[in-house]
């Protein structure tokens, strides 16, 4: 048949793409923007508070991380974070809250398989790759910095 989309794999893929609805990207982006922005703004307020109490920038940053991670882990434990994530998408995923959620969620899920291989083994299923790639890149950055600095060229 001439217009049969099941003739070839490619035709069918195109046909399915046409038939499948797209994600409501504008709405998703709007929600991601204000939730993500709000989380960052809360971080800024915490950091401002820390600085007003005399903490240095570095330490304030750590306090912000700890509080946001703790809050996110708490919400995950109450089964609320997935509802926020469903609404906000990248808005709650990209900030440090999403990273914390990605550790706590598998830990809760696999608790039934024991604490060592269940919780311990699975908690970094999502966060593990993030740490591996992040730290590996930082090692490369360090080495490049070392090479270029010793030859007298500084990056930026």
């Amino acid at each position: 048949m001439a217009n049969n989309p099941t003739e070839t794999v490619k035709d069918y893929q195109n046909y399915v793409d046409k038939k499948s609805p797209n994600s409501p990207i504008l709405k998703n982006c709007f929600n991601a923007f204000w939730v993500g922005g709000l989380i960052c703004a809360i971080g800024q307020i915490i950091s401002g508070f820390c600085k007003s109490r005399g903490l240095d920038t570095e330490l304030s940053g750590t306090v912000v991380s700890i509080l946001l991670i703790g809050f996110s882990a708490f919400l995950t434990g109450l089964n609320l974070f997935n509802k926020i994530g469903k609404f906000a998408g990248a808005g709650s995923l990209v900030p440090i809250t999403g990273f914390a959620n990605s550790i706590v969620a598998p830990a809760m899920e696999y608790k039934s398989e024991g604490y060592v291989m269940g919780v311990g083994g699975k908690m970094f299923t999502v966060a593990g790759p993030v740490l591996v790639f992040g730290i590996s890149t930082s090692i490369i950055v360090g080495i490049i910095y070392l090479i270029f600095n010793t030859t007298g060229i500084t990056l930026v």
Binding site: P21, T76, G89, A105, E109
Partner: peptide, 17 residues
């Protein structure tokens, strides 16, 4: 969900399909 996708508590969005 646990076997095929992600943990339930993970805050991600499901596509419309």
């Amino acid at each position: 969900e646990k076997q095929f996708r992600f943990p339930l508590e993970l805050g991600n969005q499901r596509p419309p399909t």
